[in-house]
């Protein structure tokens, strides 16, 4: 069994454990079963932030050291991060409809910043597809990976900057009012989603490495060798004279 499958199975097991804790945790008095959506929504949002943080760090490392591995990590982490961002947005909207009475709240700064973060990183992936040259692609994407990252802390603190319907910072604060069992369920799902992130990254970076090798082979096959236009002298005719 290869590394990807082992990681995939560990991720599946971790998710099942996380969902078990989510199923056992007490329900919110007002939200009822809709509370459980939070065990997917919150970890997805955190993992999206983590993915883009990894891209930010890998982009700086690419610019500083120019090792292809950093570019692969940056690209792969954006792909995975875009998936988690979409998941966070969708689960947020599914939760919002019964609880807030609307799928989308225009006054919610967290929703808006997360949606825009999603589009910027889609632009990152579009940028990569637009540039055939690997070094040029890596450098330009790295700059975008650094610039785009400032939306991440902005999205996180948006609930403080703007008066908004979205719940404020709850877990990471000294006087957190969160119930112990709910916190356990939430953190076990964050852990499980982190393993899912690692499993996705493992597969995605392997695909990126394969694509790189394919590009190199294709470039080598297309390249005309130096001196190809010069034909070998016909020595037999020379002997005949």
């Amino acid at each position: 069994m290869n590394r990807h499958r082992i990681l995939g199975l560990i991720a599946l097991a971790a998710v099942l454990v996380g969902f078990y804790f989510g199923g056992q945790a007490p329900l919110d008095q007002l939200q009822g079963d809709y509370t459980r959506i939070m065990y997917v929504h919150v970890p997805s949002a955190w993992l999206a932030y983590l993915s883009f943080l990894v891209t930010f760090a890998a982009s700086i490392l690419w610019l500083a050291r120019r090792k292809p591995v950093y570019d692969r990590i940056a690209e792969s982490s954006v792909s995975v991060g875009v998936f988690f961002t979409a998941l966070a947005l969708m689960t947020g909207m599914i939760w919002g409809y019964p609880v807030w009475g609307t799928f989308w709240d225009w006054g919610d700064a967290r929703m808006m910043t997360t949606a825009l973060m999603f589009f910027v990183y889609l632009g990152y992936l579009a940028l990569r597809r637009s540039i055939p040259d690997p070094a040029m692609r890596a450098t330009r994407s790295a700059v975008l990976g650094i610039v785009a990252f400032f939306l991440v802390p902005l999205s996180y603190v948006s609930v403080i900057i703007v008066r908004t319907l979205h719940q404020g910072i709850t877990v990471v604060r000294p006087d957190s009012p969160i119930d112990g069992e709910i916190l356990l369920a939430l953190l076990s799902n964050v852990g499980a989603f982190t393993v899912v992130y690692l499993a996705f990254m493992s597969v995605k970076t392997a695909i990126a490495r394969g694509e790189e090798q394919l590009e190199e082979q294709s470039a080598a096959a297309d390249a005309t060798p130096a001196g190809a236009a010069i034909t070998a002298p016909n020595l037999e005719k020379v002997r005949d004279v």
Partner: peptide
């Protein structure tokens, strides 16, 4: 880039949110 005219606004509009 060939896609510059469409790609650049896609990058700028969300980044200008702050």
């Amino acid at each position: 880039l060939r896609s510059r005219n469409t790609l650049a606004p896609l990058l700028v509009a969300p980044l200008a949110l702050p």
